[in-house]
Design a protein around this nucleic acid. Structure first.
Lengths: 206, 206
DNA sequence: TAGATTGTTAATCGATTAACAATC
DNA sequence: TAGATTGTTAATCGATTAACAATC
C-alpha cells in the first residue's frame, strides 16, 4: 500500500459520512461534483482521492453510493474494531466520552484514566474509568493502540511518555503543548484555544 | 497590511504561548531554533513568520522575548478586547465555556445560546446564557463578531445563517458538517470524530 | 450519436526548507 | 577577528486544480 497523506484520510472519513447520509436519503448514484460540494472541496480533488482508493466510477453514471461507501469502510476500518483510551476525565474528556458513546461500532473509547481517585473506578457514558497507575496494564491487556490526551498542558508530556511505553501508536492531543514521541507514533494536535484566537483574528474588521 | 494565511496566524498564536512561558521562566533572549523546537517546526519557518510580522532579531543575540511577545500581542489582539458567542450548551459547549472562563482578558465568551429553556437564563462558568430566540438581539447589542457552534449537525446550518444575519464575521464550527456562509465570513471547522478516525487509521499496524 | 463525466496526467499554486551574504 | 545567528532570496516539496482523451 502506497503512502497516503493524513489529509487524504481525513477527506475519506468526510466522504464516508456524506455517503452514509446520501444512502439514507435513498440516492444510489453520486457525481464527483456532488460529493465535492457537500465536502466543501473541488471535484478534481474528490476524483483523485477515489482514484487513490482504487474505486472506479463510470462516466455519465458517476459513483455507486453503496459500493463506494463499502470501499471506504474497508479502507478506513479495522475489521476487528479498534479501541481507544482517553486520559484526563475533565470537562472536555467527558464531552468526548459522551460524544463517542456507542456511536460507532468499529471505534469506541473503552478505557478512561485520571489521577483523581474520585473520578476513577466508575463508569462514565458506558466507559470504564481507571486510575492513571493502571494505564500500562489496562492498555496492554486490551491491546489499545490509540489514545486521546485531555489533561492539562503540564501533564501532557508525562502522559504521552506513558502511553508510548504502553504501546500506543497514535495520539489525539488536546493539551496545548507539542508532545515529543518517537517518529513512528502518529500525533494529531487539536489546540482549541489557538484555533479560537485564529478565528477571532479573522473576524476582526480589517 | 498584506494578506496573511491562517496557518501563519495559528503559528503566531503558538509562539505567543511559548514566549509567555519563556518569560515566566525568566529567559530574556531566544534563538529561532529554540522557538522552533518548542513549536515543533523548523527554524527557517519561525524566522520567516517573524519577518512577516516585521519584528527584527539580532544576529548572535537572537530575539528579545519581551519585545517579540509585545509585538505578537499587538498584532493578534484587538486592543478593545473581543467577545465571543457560543451556540449549543451541550457537553462540548460547557467544556469550552469552562476552558475559556476568565482565562484571557482579551478574548472571552460573553454569551451562550441554546434552544432548551432549561439551559438558558442562567450563568454557566460566568457566561450568561440566553434562549436562541434572543441571538440576533444579544449579538448585535454586544457587538460580537466571533461565534462557536456546538450544536448537532442538523442544526448547524440554521444556526450559522442566524449568526451571519446577526453580523458574525468568524465561526468556529464543531458540528460535523460544512456550513455555507458568504465568502467574507471566516469559518474554521473542528471535526473531532473525523480526526479521531484519522488517528485510529494511522495507529493501526500497517 | 451527442453529451456528460470519468481516469489520469500536466500545470499551478502555495507553503516549507535550504542557502548564504550581512551583521552583531 | 572568529563564530554564530539573522534577514532574505532561491530551491524544493507537496498538495490542489486544470485539462483532456477515454468511455458509458
Amino acid at each position: 500500500m502506497k503512502k497516503i497523506s493524513d489529509k487524504v484520510i481525513g477527506r475519506l472519513s468526510l466522504y464516508r459520512r456524506i455517503l452514509r447520509e446520501t444512502l439514507i436519503l435513498g440516492t444510489r448514484k453520486l457525481f464527483s461534483y456532488q460529493l465535492a460540494n457537500s465536502a466543501g472541496i473541488s471535484a478534481a480533488q474528490v476524483r483523485q482521492d477515489l482514484m487513490i482508493l482504487g474505486y472506479m466510477g463510470s462516466p455519465t453514471q458517476g459513483y455507486d453510493v453503496h459500493g463506494l461507501l463499502e470501499c471506504i469502510e474497508e479502507f478506513l476500518d479495522d475489521p476487528a474494531g479498534q479501541s481507544v483510551a482517553l486520559v484526563g476525565i475533565g470537562n472536555l474528556g467527558r464531552a468526548i466520552l459522551d460524544y463517542f458513546s456507542g456511536r460507532r461500532p468499529n471505534l469506541s473509547i473503552d478505557a478512561a484514566f485520571d489521577i483523581n481517585p474520585e473520578k476513577t473506578n466508575g463508569v462514565i457514558h458506558s466507559c470504564r474509568c481507571y486510575h492513571l497507575d493502571q494505564l500500562l496494564q489496562v492498555i496492554e491487556e486490551k491491546g489499545i493502540l490509540t489514545a486521546i490526551i485531555t489533561v492539562p498542558a503540564d501533564q501532557a508530556q508525562g502522559v504521552a511518555d506513558r502511553l508510548v511505553r504502553a504501546g500506543i501508536r497514535g495520539i489525539l492531543n488536546f493539551a496545548p503543548v507539542r508532545v515529543k514521541v518517537p517518529p513512528d507514533v502518529f500525533v494529531q494536535d487539536i489546540d482549541i484555544a489557538m484555533v479560537l484566537e485564529k478565528v477571532a483574528y479573522f473576524s476582526r474588521p480589517k
